[in-house]
Nucleic acid binder design. Structure first.
Lengths: 241, 241
DNA sequence: CCAAAAGTGTTTACACTACACCCATGA
DNA sequence: TCATGGGTGTAGTGTAAACACTTTTGG
């Protein structure tokens, strides 16, 4: 422990637990992005032994004076340059033998980020790469399991909470959103039904502009009305798609 | 670290992470039970300083050579004498200042147990007590938050998985099950609709016997057909109530 | 015989599904 | 002008919700 850590924690007092074991605590981040019709994952080449050079999630040890979720935020900011992003704890991996490097517990977090909305230089400096989920390589340690668990959580969540907006640009079209959901659930959806249900929640603001990147005709852009959504949510409304 | 710990982990090799901080890791158990129409929680008087004597969840430190989920099982068995029970990880609490005793992370687990199905002596020896959820006292550290988080998870889960059976005796009546769901959701349910939906899954076996404790007429007892449920589940069926 | 809980069916509204065609535009 | 994706409406079906009375039996 560093001196500054001790000061921040105000650890003048006794360590009441000193007869027990201490363990390394890490956090690993499952970073989802969406681009080009595909759900992607940001991974990089592990620098730390053991398994250095292997594709891996991005993670870090938790410092003695650091909240676990802040450790995850720190990692994400270091890599992407983004300080405000959607981040949730997913699950904790605590088997004694999960890390051959030493006993180390990992509190996994998953993040949703808009691809292109981050500092590309930072990402490149870290040897990071956006992999399409479908052809993800074998990752270090138990990271593949972390990804599949997080994906299951994402799927469940996407059904009941408007997290899709975290993965699309601020202005997006209905067909884009549909493609996102199709990527998350790996199945096709009916465009009429999808549009109907999405708009039925009345939390989208239709803009004048069109996005012509997807077709000659162009599709109207929308914005998510987060104030209205918060209102609805507080009065017991349940987003569902 | 004890010698036996070192042997079990086979830690002949280098500690690759030695320049990082280590942290105490604990697990705390949110133990739900159901009795007398009420959802209850098993808590006890904390023995460890700080906060010794305060009502608290049951927990323990995780040993260096111990899986986190096994630590939770160990705690539950020590208290209740039950080795086989429904146990799930709920959430990890990792704020730097959450425990004034020292930096300590807690991986919370929740368990569902049938009240009366455990060794009462063991429980009494530990100064434990079944508290009705509604009038739960203030608990040590962040344990009240742990309880409310776990309750939220339980509610979500009860809707889509047949966890009700974990909280009732092996033989139970439909009205008992309804009371359980009413306790979980804190609202009244229509007995006709509830019965219809519950039986529609075809995973209950109606017995000849009646339970007369609840009324003069008596209610038929049922058993959960877990083999059939597993079959259904494997072929993609989704329990929902 | 009566209080108290168990058990039973039907109707209604709403939400989900399936499904096919026209529109706008750039090349 | 045509190829491409955007956008629209409706009928049918199944599921959830609302709702009231009869049955049983111990006291």
């Amino acid at each position: 422990m560093t001196l500054s850590s001790a000061k921040k924690m105000n650890l003048q007092h006794k360590d009441f637990y000193s007869k027990n074991d201490k363990i390394y605590v890490a956090t690993d981040c499952i970073i989802f992005g969406f681009d080009d019709g595909d759900l992607k994952l940001l991974i990089f080449k592990r620098k730390q032994e053991p398994d250095a050079g292997i594709w891996s999630l991005i993670g870090s040890f938790v410092k003695l004076d650091e909240d676990v979720n802040n450790a995850a935020r720190r990692v994400l900011e270091e890599i992407t340059g983004l300080s405000e992003l959607y981040l949730e704890q997913s699950k904790t991996y605590g088997n004694a033998d999960r890390d051959p490097g030493y006993r180390c517990l990992s509190v996994a977090h998953y993040a949703l980020i808009r691809i292109g909305d981050y500092d590309k230089k930072l990402v490149e400096e870290h040897g990071a790469y956006w992999y399409t989920l479908k052809d993800l390589p074998t990752l270090a340690l138990d990271h593949n399991k972390m990804v599949s668990d997080a994906l299951a959580i994402l799927r469940r969540k996407a059904r009941y909470e408007p997290i899709g907006f975290e993965l699309l640009p601020e202005k997006f079209t209905i067909p884009q959103m549909q493609k996102l959901y199709e990527a998350i659930y790996q199945r096709e959806l009916d465009p009429r039904n999808f549009r109907k249900k999405l708009l039925s929640h009345k939390v989208l603001i239709k803009l004048e502009e069109k996005d012509k990147s997807g077709s000659k005709r162009g599709a109207f852009l929308y914005r998510f009305d987060s104030e209205k959504y918060e209102e609805l949510r507080e009065s017991g409304y349940n987003f569902e798609i």
